[in-house]
C-alpha cells in the first residue's frame, strides 16, 4: 500500500502530476515511471530509494528537467516545465537547480575554481570578482580552498566530488538533485558530503532530493520515497528502518 507523505511546512516548489516515462527498446515500449504524483516542499531533505532499474534515476532526471515526461506535468516553482522551450528550460536549471551525480563530471580543462564558477558565468548575474569570491567560499566550506587552482587530474575522487557539489551549489539553487552522490566515495568522504548537505538544508532551507543506496544517508533523511517498478510505493517523513528498505547495512542494494 502506498503511504503518502504529509506536507512539510515550506512552500511547494516541485510538483509531479500523473508523470509517466516510457522508453522505446526495440519495437516495444517499456514503462519506466507510471503515473507518478509527488509534491516537494522548500526545505525537504529527501532520499529516493529503490532497486536498480526501479526508475529512481529517471525520476530524478525528470525532477531536474533534464528529461521530459511521456505523459503528465511537472511544475517547478509554479512553472509548467512542459510549456518551456530548450532555452527557458536551461535557464530554469541554471537558476533553480543544482546537480550532483555519482561520477563527478568535472570538466577537465578548467581548474576546480573555474568549474565552480561555470554555472555563475552562465547565469551572468554576478561580476567576475563576485563569482570568484563565491566559488572560493564554497570550496573553502568543502575543505578545498588550498586546491582551488588544481586541475581535475591533480585531485582525488573525493575532492572531485566535493568540487562537483560546490558547482551544484554555485547559483544557490532552490533544489539540489543528487544521484548517488556518495556512491564512489569512502565512508569518510560520504560523511563529509552528507553533513554538508544537511548543514545547508538546515541553514538555507535548500531542498535536497537524493537518490541513494547508502543506509546512513537514507536513515538521516526527513523524507524517504521508495520507487518500485516505476511506481511510488512509500513516501513518508521520518527515518526508515533498514528492515523496511531494500538496503543492505553496508549501503549497497541487497
Amino acid at each position: 500500500m502506498v503511504e503518502f507523505c504529509k506536507p512539510a511546512a515550506g512552500k511547494k516548489i516541485l510538483e509531479l502530476r500523473e508523470v509517466s516515462k516510457r522508453l522505446k527498446s526495440g519495437d516495444s515500449w517499456t514503462t519506466i515511471l507510471d503515473a507518478v504524483n509527488l509534491d516537494f516542499y522548500q526545505g525537504d531533505f529527501c532520499a529516493i530509494v529503490g532497486n536498480s532499474g526501479s526508475g529512481k534515476s529517471t525520476l530524478l532526471y525528470l525532477l531536474g528537467i533534464l528529461d521530459s515526461p511521456s505523459d503528465g506535468k511537472i511544475l517547478l516553482d509554479g512553472i509548467d516545465t512542459g510549456a518551456l522551450d530548450n532555452r527557458e528550460l536551461a535557464k530554469l536549471r541554471n537558476e533553480k537547480l543544482g546537480f550532483v551525480f555519482q561520477f563527478h563530471y568535472i570538466l577537465p580543462e578548467f581548474t576546480a575554481l573555474e568549474n565552480v564558477m561555470l554555472p555563475m558565468m552562465v547565469a551572468a548575474r554576478l561580476s567576475k570578482a563576485q563569482q570568484r569570491e563565491r566559488a572560493m567560499m564554497l570550496l573553502d566550506q568543502l575543505g578545498l580552498a588550498e586546491r582551488r587552482n588544481y586541475y581535475p587530474s591533480q585531485l582525488s575522487g573525493g575532492q572531485l566530488q566535493r568540487v562537483a557539489i560546490a558547482r551544484a551549489l554555485a547559483n544557490q539553487p532552490l533544489i539540489v538533485l543528487a544521484d548517488e552522490p556518495t556512491g564512489n566515495l569512502d565512508s569518510a568522504n560520504s560523511k563529509i558530503v552528507f553533513d554538508y548537505f544537511r548543514k545547508l538544508n538546515q541553514e538555507t532551507g535548500q531542498t535536497f532530493l537524493v537518490v541513494t543506496h547508502t543506509v546512513g544517508f537514507v536513515q538521516d533523511c526527513d523524507r524517504i520515497i521508495e520507487i518500485s517498478d516505476g511506481k511510488v510505493i512509500h513516501d513518508r517523513r521520518g527515518p526508515i528502518a533498514s528492515s523496511e528498505s531494500n538496503l543492505s547495512p553496508g549501503g549497497q542494494p541487497a
Binding site: L66, N86, R87, A90, K91, R93, L107, L118, V122, R167
Partner: peptide
C-alpha cells in the same frame, strides 16, 4: 558528451 550533458545540466543551452 558527458561533459556536454553536465554543461546542459548546469544551464548551458543548445545555442550556447
Amino acid at each position: 558528451k558527458r561533459d556536454i550533458a553536465i554543461m546542459q545540466a548546469f544551464g548551458v543551452n543548445r545555442t550556447a
